[in-house]
Design a protein around this nucleic acid. Sequence first.
DNA 1: CGGACAAGTTTGCCAC
DNA 2: GTGGCAAACTTGTCCG
Lengths: 87, 87, 87, 87
Amino acid sequence: MHDTTSTDVLDQSGQMRLRTIIERLERLDEDKTAVSDDMKEVFAEAKGEGYDLKALRAVLKLRKMDRAKRLELEAIVDLYLSAIGEI
Amino acid sequence: MHDTTSTDVLDQSGQMRLRTIIERLERLDEDKTAVSDDMKEVFAEAKGEGYDLKALRAVLKLRKMDRAKRLELEAIVDLYLSAIGEI
Amino acid sequence: MHDTTSTDVLDQSGQMRLRTIIERLERLDEDKTAVSDDMKEVFAEAKGEGYDLKALRAVLKLRKMDRAKRLELEAIVDLYLSAIGEI
Amino acid sequence: MHDTTSTDVLDQSGQMRLRTIIERLERLDEDKTAVSDDMKEVFAEAKGEGYDLKALRAVLKLRKMDRAKRLELEAIVDLYLSAIGEI
DNA sequence: CGGACAAGTTTGCCAC
DNA sequence: GTGGCAAACTTGTCCG
């Protein structure tokens, strides 16, 4: 019913483009997995040295919250400063 | 009540070590966020070019499942081979 | 300070409804536990007959992945068909 | 190298038995999924009526802990009673 | 905003 | 009995 050149949903360049996109995403996914694995390693290392993983995770979360909060605060400050023409 | 050198739960080297661990984890977490952001960018790009995100994600998932399935299958084959003394 | 009819967060019917919900969930949880126990029994039985549990679990997982993959594939096909107006 | 009747790891009845075991487990797994789905439904229903899911889960967990604790206590009581020849 | 999807956390199981 | 491994559940995120 269909020939391979004109009735496909994607033309040849579209197929190439799609292939590129998929490969980029799969490569990034591998990177993400690699980083996760690295983190697991560090956690395992810490555990092996007797650190409490639950507490450690809690510390990381708190520090992250603090950073986010600090950034938010700075953003507001900048906003106010620019609002009064100070920046 | 406590001096800083002898009664703390962590001695000075332990504190240093902990600090190092936390910094490594935070660095890795940044990496992970960066990779996630990159993926978001690629998805947004693909969307902008008219590709269907849901279908795209489905394709990635399927390809990943195929890889996982192939790996799992090989593992089982090895298991069976060793079970019958072939390895 | 509070009478029991007007200032509670949940009125009487709300309390009844909540009780019903909790009981349904607890009943379902019992069912789930029962099924899990049944599975444990079957696994124990199989082990007693000399089957390798690890291999058995691997087979189940693989068959489940196959089913999932097939379903996913069909979903994608449908998606593509609808994307080109075939459905 | 191998014929199909004598050198396989599992003889015919063993294969049948294995098939039976797998089917029982897969059936039980379906049951488990069904129960989980039912629970999801009830949770969704409760959410739709305005109940707080997190709190609801907490209540279920607490009640389950209480039951476990009570059962444990009763077990100890029975143990003591039987120890003094009361049962 | 609400539901789907993925990540992280916790729990249970098997091997040593 | 313990410790690593794997599965289940819960939480958070992202798209529609």
